[in-house]
Write a protein that binds this DNA or RNA. Structure first.
Lengths: 321, 321
DNA sequence: ACTGAGAACGTTCTAGAACTCTGG
DNA sequence: CCAGAGTTCTAGAACGTTCTCAGT
């Protein structure tokens, strides 16, 4: 999900953040294990062995063997992956289940998650505490309540963080969609301009040709000039029709896969609405070679047959404001 | 301890013993896991990975990594060393502690021992049984705990499922937006093609007019025909330039907010990255009246100063993959 | 034969228990 | 010394798969 650009930006921020938080948040109140873990994951030197998850709310040991051999001994007094996992569980980290669809990090990868262990959020680390052992052997009934409470707190925090991430993601997507919509509107306007131009040009050409024919008939010019003029005029109208000369090579192939992409099904949560966008035509601009004043409107499917004379400011699609 | 001779003899005996005991001791009453384990250890093919201990009363996994990768999957449905160890403990195998003097099998070796798991003694294997869980729990207290837990669990599971649905929906929306972006890019390309066409047409018109004027001057036509042709030609060239006639009013104002919207930040979940999208240029198609081959590129903000000659396949925005 | 409920076993993730280490 | 954290080995708990066997 994160582009190269974003990653590099994050990397830039990372160093600054590290320098800053190593002195503050990470040095006070953050357990040693958690600090070491954070540094391990943030360390770019072992990027292929251990790294952050794609969503930034988990970390991934991509290669447990290499991790045990080279990374673990750098920070701990053992090279035992099981011991490492034991520590993680003591600090309430949880392994993320590997499903069929979820093999993003490789077959051998182990992904762990803690609500307060997130990329670029060292300030949250101090909330990660070692789980207290239920030493209430003599206290009887309290154990159940405390245990349920702790579990509840953990799960709730996890849910909250997930909701937080989702909310953020939703805001971003919404914003991006608006941006896309505005771009699209601008393109539509520009297309309208183009179309108007072509219509005007069409008319001019018609007048021009008519004029030429008249002149030709009226005058006593040589036959060769007549034929030449007519030929060029015909070519010109052909150009105006957009179908032949100078057609950008490969544009068909560029557009066609997009057409296939279109069929992907429902877009929105619980909505079966169709896209107002490009039709299944395969071309965004319609088949302009068949009609001299081709409609540029790739219209909503509601109006299949648009009257040709209704060409003023066609709306490609309506955008949410 | 064991010479080559004795080993070969043992190997010879081994096959006979195996054949014999596979039919007797090992096929009746011996748990599957124990049988598999015995065969693994006895298998000479992986002698460097797993083998009997020197005293024949234990077995040694010399290289857990190789063992996990190659040996485990041959007999079990996983390649997880921890799961293997869990099974061993369930059958009451015990790890032999590695002391300073006791590194006979290497630093990474794991040695396990069971009184009835011995070299050349498959007859003992049937004595190895799964440990029975101490199911001495009273049925009384369970209901209470489960009930209080149950209500909570229902709610959290509901929340989790909702989050799961939202996450999925978000992924779909993201993917679809991705596709929309690609479509948009294709449209931009097509627009570029169109514009190029119009420019070509422009040039043709110019040449046409120039030709006509020349013809006109050379011939003995009337003055009126010349002037009329010139007038129409002038109008036509104006069209081709796209900048004056029929230019959609207000396109600047429509497009400019896109630039502002652009600065809005990350598109994706958990990413603090900047938007790669359209820059604040203001027009998708550039100012075509100022430059014959105007760049249509509304470029990323990273490249503020784009060289004018770089006009090939301009990117309106970079989309996350 | 077919079937389905339950037992036994396998796999995974987490926790318990006992030990060592370390700093005040 | 001793309390807390780290390390190691083993066990608990949950869930999935396979086996079994009675009842149809």
């Amino acid at each position: 999900m994160s582009t190269d650009l974003s990653q590099s930006i994050q990397a830039d921020m990372q160093s600054a953040v590290d320098d800053k938080f190593d002195m503050f948040a990470m040095s006070t109140g953050v357990p040693d294990f958690v600090k070491k873990l954070f540094r391990q994951v943030a360390d770019e030197a072992h990027r292929d062995i251990v790294c952050w998850g794609y969503e930034g709310d988990s970390f991934v040991v991509k290669d447990p063997n290499e991790f045990s051999k080279f990374v673990l001994p750098q920070h701990f007094k053992h090279n035992n992956f099981a011991s490492f996992v034991r520590q993680l569980n003591k600090y309430d980290f949880h392994k993320v289940k590997v499903t069929e669809e979820n093999k993003r990090y490789g077959d051998e990868a182990w992904e762990f998650k803690h609500p307060n262990f997130q990329h670029n959020r060292p300030d949250l680390l101090e909330k990660i505490k070692r789980k207290i052992p239920p030493k209430t052997k003599s206290l009887g009934g309290l154990v159940n309540g405390r245990h349920a409470d702790g579990e509840f707190r953990v799960i709730t925090e996890d849910l909250q963080s997930q909701i937080h991430l989702l909310t953020h993601a939703h805001a971003e997507v919404t914003m991006y969609m608006h941006q896309l919509g505005k771009q699209q509107q601008a393109m539509i306007d520009e297309l309208n301009g183009l179309k108007k131009n072509m219509q005007t040009q069409d008319q001019l050409m018609e007048e021009f040709v008519r004029y030429l024919v008249n002149q030709d008939a009226a005058s006593n010019g040589s036959r060769s000039s007549i034929s030449a003029a007519a030929a060029v005029a015909a070519a010109a109208t052909g150009i105006g029709g957009l179908g032949t000369i100078g057609h950008v090579p490969g544009i068909g192939s560029v557009v066609s896969p997009v057409g296939t992409v279109n069929g992907v099904g429902p877009l929105m949560v619980g909505s079966d609405a169709n896209v107002n966008g490009a039709a299944g035509n395969g071309s965004f601009l319609g088949d302009s070679s068949s009609n001299g004043s081709a409609s540029l409107c790739v219209d909503s499917q509601l109006k299949q047959q648009q009257p040709p004379q209704q060409t003023q400011q066609p709306q490609l699609c309506e955008l949410p404001h």
